[in-house]
Design a binder for these strands. Sequence first.
DNA 1: ATGAAAGCGCTAACAG
DNA 2: CTGTTAGCGCTTTCAT
Lengths: 355, 355
Amino acid sequence: MNSRRDKKRANLRDVARAANVSVATVSRVLNSPAIVQQDTRLRVETAITELGFHPSAAARAINSGRSKIFGALIPSLDNDTFALTIEAIERRLGQFGFSLVVATTAEVPEQEVQRAKELLDIGVEGLFLPGISHEAALYDLLARRRVPAIAISYFDPGFSYPTIGYDNRKAARLALDHLFELGHQRIAVVHGPKIHNDRTRERIAGASEHRKDVALTFLETELSVAGGATVVAQAMAEKWSFDAYLCVSDVLAFGVLFELQRYGVAVPDVVSVIGIHDLPSSQMTTPRLSTVHLPAEEMGQHAAEALAQWVEDDVVPDAVCFECKLVARETTARKTAVTNSKSASTAPKHPTKDA
Amino acid sequence: MNSRRDKKRANLRDVARAANVSVATVSRVLNSPAIVQQDTRLRVETAITELGFHPSAAARAINSGRSKIFGALIPSLDNDTFALTIEAIERRLGQFGFSLVVATTAEVPEQEVQRAKELLDIGVEGLFLPGISHEAALYDLLARRRVPAIAISYFDPGFSYPTIGYDNRKAARLALDHLFELGHQRIAVVHGPKIHNDRTRERIAGASEHRKDVALTFLETELSVAGGATVVAQAMAEKWSFDAYLCVSDVLAFGVLFELQRYGVAVPDVVSVIGIHDLPSSQMTTPRLSTVHLPAEEMGQHAAEALAQWVEDDVVPDAVCFECKLVARETTARKTAVTNSKSASTAPKHPTKDA
DNA sequence: ATGAAAGCGCTAACAG
DNA sequence: CTGTTAGCGCTTTCAT
């Protein structure tokens, strides 16, 4: 039978033989063509193309100890939260001759460790991790195997690994300040699970820091569009009344916005909604989502460069904090004096406890 | 200075020495533990853990000729079109001990070839490609290097590589039939660039096949939410009047829906909108998007299994066509007898030419 | 059941 | 400038 693996690839020796040179010379035209004589080089090059020779990455890796592969451990590609950043990383990495293996962890810590092991086993030279709160086992692994890692989407200059991200507290503060300035007082802070997600925790903390006269109600839900919708459905059912929803992630804001509209609550006339992230889709909702812009692609690019330089030149990257800034679009507006809402919230009872 | 690369990892020899056995034995406990005696195995195993030994993937690859890595060439991770599928592939692949390197091509053919080369150079054992229309250079590459590849999101049992996907024509036909049955006659078919995208072409073809009494206007735009919005903006400006928008991709449908709403055009009362794909977000818009469901994750899983089996057992996978089915939600409704639209379309002029 | 030794495809001294 | 020769870390006969 004619298997795919019938004839084997040409190797250095084959090329050397065909070009009548030594393997070393072939290796040279591959790696430093400049130092080999014009005609020998040409001879070798034709031999290479004629034999359809391609150097084996494995063999190269075994010698150099370098795989030229990085790994990224992310919860999911589903919601756009990491997709943009991953793509930015991948693109930039390509320019450095690195490839990226993506491993999704579904935000399950044990799976994260497991996947990290697999990545290290295939020989990745470094890792991108979201945030800094991970299993001790993960950090043990990294330390033992001396694998460089960069925490992204998070900033903490004091952390043992470089963090390249944004000030998540500030992002939340910007959003809250905006709502406050518009006169909103009773604000629902919608967020995903705090556990295993330091970005979420930081943003919640940022909102909490706000010392002014606002009543904050923290509502935890699944980190998804559906999760955002759930929160609103609950608020309507319980007849909670909020001036505004501060969604700690755009993804949640989408769900909140859509569900409010489903209930016929006018946004922003009756209720304001703001997110954090500025995903591409946030410009496309109706009304367009107000949010805090996180420079995710810029961050991805920088993280890629930083990790590449780290393993290439052994320079440990500095922590970097990218500025986030308010993007006030159409889902936030000044609070109207009288709440002449056609919404279901008839009893403006204010909840005081987390859901 | 204390570089990261100071002390080197333990290797087989180190373990062998520590356990007082030969390297062959260590290799055996690694690969076929059953055939080595209980106590020697234990001795070796403790040595392994004590030295923190981890086999080098590169060395293993060089011997086996197997990298246990696949590659995926996709246009982008940005819009969700491939994100779900990629994630499904990645997950399933993990269970087979394979990793996935993702390379994005921005739908630029030359870049696709370039990225494919890079993937092959790092030694991927197989490739996932969207659809079947790619540069001849890409197929040359695959043929010359004898790399298995599976075309996804597309179905053509006669194609030289296995296709695992859906009947894109049928998907479009389902959508169009639905609109027709609701009484819509003047239909805008919104699609991304036909060039380099056979899914788009097939869906357009599927819509065109419809032999009944409908007036189809094909509108090409960028394949993005913004692209969908653009089409509507243009239609409003030109005062084109459509009963319905058949968007060949949910992504476009989002843009169309949002922009119609921005213009105050009631969906579905005045205009119906339908997409194709059934992305997660399509359940979350207001009103919820009618669409044709494409089982993207199922497909991804199957493609992953198929490619894994192909390289493991040398069985060329069969082409598989996953069923797509109409999901009539809230953006499509029966055409009202009188078009009492509050939209800007005052002159129901019907365009006859592509934009 | 275990060991010795020959590679796998390539890089990197070291000679010349 | 080019060739010779050790390896890199592991798998795999082939003996024992």
